[in-house]
Amino acid sequence: MRTRPAARAGQYAALLAYLVFLAFPFVWLASTAFKPATELAGLHPTWIPKDPTLANFRQAFDEQPLLRAALNSLLTASAAALVAVAVATPMAYVMARHRSALARAATGWVVVSQAFPFVLLIIPLFLVLKNLRLIDSLPGLVLVHVVWSLPFALWMLTGYVRAVPAELEEAAAVDGAGRLRTLVSVTVPLLAPGIAATALFAFVTAWNEFFFALVLLKTPEQQTLPVLLTRFIGAEGVADLGPLAAAAFLATLPSLLVFALIQRRITGSLLAGAVKG
């Protein structure tokens, strides 16, 4: 199929417009992060800092417990990701291989859990965790993040399990391997790349998550990066644009890096799922 040159040019122009729309806020964030305070106070802001500086980053680290918050985020997100794939992988295996009522119920939960407003969930969760003395503690937040990332983890992993031929497992069973043995030494190694991608996705989800962290964490020593960033803004609006932009810029980098790593896998498995249907 040929497209006329005029139409082609129009398509490129439209694509360019999309990219500008999608990219400019991020470019502006980066630009603000590297601008000296004098330039930020000036009347005519420019796209490219005239006199780029790292002062904002230094100030952000000096004035706010940025490292502490980053460490909290790193710990909770890693723990949540590891626990999530650890519990989701066996369940996804069952959902992919067995058409039981349980598997159907689990699929139903994956869909329905998307529709509930968090208020309805967070108040009882808050009370339950309070009784377990897990309020204002990172383990409590990890638990919530695990459940929060489970639907997507289950969905991704179920797709990956389906891609592993059942014949391989049957062959192992014929050779006398038990169910657990088959799972551990045949299926899991083949699933490894999928499990890694799922874990990374769960990591980003937990790293970015804000609402639960806002409600569940009270003391400043416990807060995660997104919560700290909102404290930067304060009640009376933005005080210091430069350090705020610098901290926000840093908080985004891990998510972008991980996403770049798994981007192909996420879109790829989506496409595979759609085509196979």
Binding site: L22, L29, F210, L244, A248, L256
Partner: peptide, 19 residues
């Protein structure tokens, strides 16, 4: 590029647009 907004923490998206 088109999926960059997906990867960003929502809080950062908010801050970015405030700027």
């Amino acid at each position: 590029l088109a999926i960059v907004p997906w990867a960003m923490p929502e809080v950062v998206v908010g801050i970015m647009w405030r700027l």
